[in-house]
């Protein structure tokens, strides 16, 4: 059920993408811990954007690290929608002026060769459906001022999605160690964020399984060709105009995120 307050908040959040007049946390206008209400707001915007002609190409999974879950007082991940216009390729310049308080995270992306539908999905179904994996940067953003987010704020705000960058060397699941693969984000040659596959819910495939089941439950099952950003492998890093970052994931290759502009 959507009510006027959901519609109002959804419209406000949507307008901030252009105005960049970041708002106060919206959770204060909803009941405590109103996760259902938050997803209702996200859904209003997803439907709006689909009607406006944006192409849905996948999902992101958020809140996949234990540290972040503890910080927000939750014990499960969340999801957001990925549209075609959010996707960049390795090394393409990302216009900084189109971002909202951007931070970057290194992740494993999965591209599906088969749909994941039905209410009894297993990890084997997910593994069979993954066509290939790629190293990817998620460039998260927040329409909430200074990222003062709780679980409700981030879910309503499309799980703090922004843009994402995909590497271009496709790897099969059997070609790397999903649980123990080392990951490092480098800025000017310095390791600014490090981690491993296990930082994402113990294994990025576990996150993908959670998502696949959730998408069936909410009536937007994952389809053939969908991109799944499975969740951060290390801490987030602030991105400034002109920044260049490299992500290297052991066995999976590397990807670069280049931001337009001159450093402050």
């Amino acid at each position: 059920m959507t009510t006027t307050i959901h519609q109002t908040i959804a419209t406000e959040l949507r307008e901030i993408y252009q105005s960049r007049q970041y708002c106060a946390p919206i959770s204060t206008r909803l009941p405590d811990n109103d996760v259902a209400g938050a997803y209702a707001i996200q859904d209003i915007n997803t439907d709006h954007w689909l009607r406006a002609g944006r192409r849905l190409v996948g999902r992101k999974i958020g809140l996949t690290s234990r540290a972040v879950q503890e910080q927000l007082g939750v014990n499960q991940p969340d999801y957001g929608m990925l549209f075609a216009d959010m996707c960049y390729a390795d090394g393409e310049t990302i216009p900084y002026e189109n971002l909202q308080q951007p931070k970057i995270e290194g992740e494993v992306a999965f591209v599906l060769g088969q749909a994941l539908d039905g209410d009894t999905l297993t990890i084997a179904d997910v593994m069979a459906a993954v066509d290939y994996a790629l190293p990817s940067f998620e460039i998260v953003g927040s329409r909430i001022k200074d990222w003062k987010i709780g679980i409700v704020d981030t879910i309503a705000d499309n799980a703090s999605s922004g843009m994402f960058v995909l590497g271009t060397e496709a790897r099969k699941l059997s070609e790397f160690d999903l649980r123990l693969c080392g990951a490092v984000v480098e800025h000017k040659g310095e390791p600014v964020s490090t981690g491993a596959g296990a930082a994402c819910l113990g294994n990025p495939l576990i996150a993908a399984l959670w998502l696949a089941r959730k998408m069936v439950e909410v009536g937007r099952p994952l389809r053939r060709g969908d991109i799944v950003l499975s969740g951060a492998l290390g801490p987030m890093v602030n991105a400034q105009p002109g920044d260049a970052f490299t992500l290297r994931i052991s066995g999976l290759g590397s990807v670069r995120a280049l931001f337009s502009g001159t450093p402050p």
Binding site: L180, G182, T194, I249, S250
Partner: peptide
């Protein structure tokens, strides 16, 4: 850039990379 993990009683208490 090898993944490194410390576990206490089968639960991860630290996850990182040799990088």
């Amino acid at each position: 850039n090898l993944g490194m993990m410390l576990q206490f009683n089968g639960r991860p208490v630290g996850i990182g990379s040799s990088a």
